[in-house]
Amino acid sequence: MDRKKAELIATCWTTAGDVRPDHADNLSRWRLEERIEAAARAGYHGFGFWLGDLVAWREGGGDYGALRRRLIDAGLNIVELEYLSDWFAKGERRERSDAARAELFRAADALGARHAKVMPPFGGQDLPMELLAGHFTALCDEAARHDLLIAMEMIPFSDLPDLSSALELVRRADAANGGLLIDVWHVVRSGGAVADVAEVPGRFIKAVELCDADLAMRGTIAEDTMRHRRLCGEGQFDLQGFVGALGRAGYDGPYGVEILSDAFRALPLDEAARRSFDAAAPFCAIAAGTAGQ
């Protein structure tokens, strides 16, 4: 039986260069056109945009329609948007979030985005699960009007620190276009086993990310996640087991490649795109072979 070929997305940080998402000045120094072309030359099927880069592009006179045409010409047919936070908040935080949400949906319409990443709450806010689920349902309902999937990332240093708590939220929300983004780094650092992913119903897995790392954490968890990830196959994570578990769960969507490390950020753009794709592609092939098993 023919199987759908698994596809790889160059997530926004894979082509961003020497900038970090946790720093205030986190806009890429490389032009979006150059990054799109580098991802396409490397062999990627999709491209991820940081919302801040998109806003800077538009405010600098760029046109989202022209950007969409570049993606099409480059053969990049999967678009990811990153990210929306505080979708559950009140007051000024919610006002800022709603402004970002409007821009995100505007970009999604123009670029034909597949999914958008959203962040869980942080800082021990102790928000009731029913409250979060209601806000998530509302967000997904609005996103559905833009043909957009909403993928909440499970992050071990957030208020939803493991697969079980993150899954509880999306189960309660029960939105057809809403679910989880599962990053192998977060699964391992949460203390979970990659095999646990097989127990997540496939309908609740909306996006996936690959990277590698040492099993032993280096520094704090924040330092480890931002500075010490490795190219796929160059660390100690069981990536084969991870994609196998996703296949057993029924996931057959694209795989994002997200390499956050000091060494990777120092690479020239074309080398970063090529090396990240070449390292992840063998695991992409495994994913294609296990989907639906």
Rank of each mutant, 00 (worst) to 15 (best):
L8Q: 09
L8R: 10
L8I: 04
I9C: 06
T11H: 11
D18P: 06
D18L: 02
D22C: 01
H23T: 11
A24H: 11
A24W: 07
R29V: 11
W30Q: 15
R31M: 13
L32A: 08
L32N: 10
I36R: 12
E37P: 05
E37K: 15
A38F: 11
A39Q: 10
A40T: 08
R41V: 07
G43C: 12
G48P: 09
L51Q: 15
L51V: 08
D53N: 15
G60T: 02
G61Y: 03
D63Q: 14
A66V: 12
R68E: 05
R69T: 08
R70N: 10
A74L: 05
A74S: 12
G75A: 08
V79N: 04
L81N: 09
E82Y: 15
Y83I: 10
D86Y: 13
F88V: 06
R94K: 14
E95C: 03
E95M: 12
E95T: 12
R101V: 03
E103D: 12
F105V: 07
D109H: 12
D109T: 13
A110H: 09
A110L: 12
V118W: 04
G123H: 06
D126M: 09
M129D: 13
M129G: 14
E130A: 15
E130H: 13
L131K: 13
L132W: 11
A133L: 10
A133T: 10
H135I: 01
A138C: 02
R145W: 01
H146F: 14
D147H: 15
I150Y: 03
E153N: 10
E153L: 10
M154W: 05
P156F: 10
P156V: 11
S158V: 13
D159K: 12
L160T: 06
S164K: 15
E168H: 12
L169F: 10
R171P: 06
R171H: 11
R172Q: 14
A173H: 06
D174S: 14
N177T: 11
G178C: 07
L180D: 03
L181K: 02
L181V: 12
L181R: 04
I182S: 05
I182F: 07
V187A: 09
R189C: 04
S190E: 07
S190F: 00
V194D: 08
A195C: 04
A198Q: 07
A198H: 05
V200R: 05
P201W: 01
G202M: 03
R203W: 00
F204R: 02
L210K: 00
C211V: 04
A213W: 02
R218I: 07
E223D: 05
D224L: 03
D224R: 00
T225A: 07
M226N: 07
R227A: 00
R230E: 08
L231S: 06
L231A: 10
G235M: 05
Q240W: 05
Q240D: 14
G241F: 00
V243C: 03
A245E: 02
A249C: 06
Y251P: 01
Y251D: 02
G253M: 07
P254I: 08
E258W: 00
E258A: 02
I259A: 00
R265H: 01
E271T: 11
A273R: 01
A273N: 00
R275D: 01
S276Y: 01
S276K: 00
F277N: 10
A280L: 07
A287G: 13
A288I: 01
T290H: 07
T290R: 10
A291Y: 02
